[in-house]
Amino acid sequence: DAEFRHDSGYEVHHQKLVFFAEDVGSNKGAIIGLMVGGVVIA
C-alpha cells in the first residue's frame, strides 16, 4: 500500500515536470534538460 502511494506521487510529479516543459516550449533539448535536472534534484 505504501509503495503504491509512493509510485502514484512519483507519477504525478513526473507529469507536472512534463507539463511544465511543454508549457515553456516544445524544444526537446529543454524538455530533456528539465527531466535530467529533475532527476538530479530528486
Rank of each mutant, 00 (worst) to 15 (best):
R5H: 06
S8E: 08
I31R: 04
E22Q: 15
L34K: 02
H6F: 09
H14A: 13
V40E: 01
D7A: 12
H14M: 06
A42Q: 06
D1S: 09
K28T: 08
G33V: 01
G9Y: 08
E22N: 15
F4M: 07
E3V: 05
D1M: 15
V24H: 09
V24Y: 03
A30K: 02
A21Y: 11
A30E: 03
E11L: 04
N27S: 04
R5M: 12
S8Q: 13
I41Q: 04
D1K: 12
N27W: 06
K16A: 06
G37D: 00
V39N: 05
V36H: 03
F19Q: 05
D1C: 07
R5G: 10
V12K: 12
V12Y: 10
Q15Y: 03
Q15S: 07
I32E: 01
D7L: 11
S8I: 11
E11Y: 09
H14S: 08
V40T: 02
D1I: 03
V40H: 03
V36D: 01
D7V: 09
A30N: 08
N27Y: 12
G37M: 01
G38Q: 05
R5L: 07
K16F: 01
A21W: 07
N27D: 00
F19K: 12
V12R: 12
V39Y: 03
R5P: 05
I31C: 07
I32Q: 01
F19D: 14
G33W: 05
S8P: 06
A30W: 02
F20K: 14
G38M: 04
A21Q: 09
E22A: 15
A2S: 07
I31P: 01
E11T: 15
Y10L: 06
V39P: 00
L34H: 01
Y10C: 10
R5K: 09
G33T: 03
E3H: 11
S26R: 03
D1R: 13
F20V: 13
A2K: 08
G25K: 15
G37Q: 01
V36S: 04
Q15G: 10
F19H: 06
I41L: 05
V39S: 00
A42V: 11
V40F: 04
H6N: 11
K28D: 00
N27V: 13
F4E: 07
A42D: 03
I31W: 02
K28N: 11
H13I: 15
L34Q: 06
F20T: 12
G25S: 11
R5I: 06
H6D: 08
A42T: 15
G25P: 02
K16H: 11
F20N: 10
M35A: 01
A21I: 14
M35V: 08
F4D: 08
H13F: 14
D1L: 04
H13T: 10
R5S: 12
I41W: 05
N27I: 12
F20P: 04
L34D: 00
L17C: 11
D23Q: 08
G29T: 08
I32S: 00
V12H: 14
E22H: 15
V18D: 13
E11W: 03
E22F: 03
H6G: 11
V12N: 12
S26N: 14
Q15M: 11
G38L: 03
I32L: 01
I31E: 00
A2D: 07
I31V: 06
I41T: 01
D1H: 10
A2H: 10
L17Q: 03
A21M: 14
S26G: 08
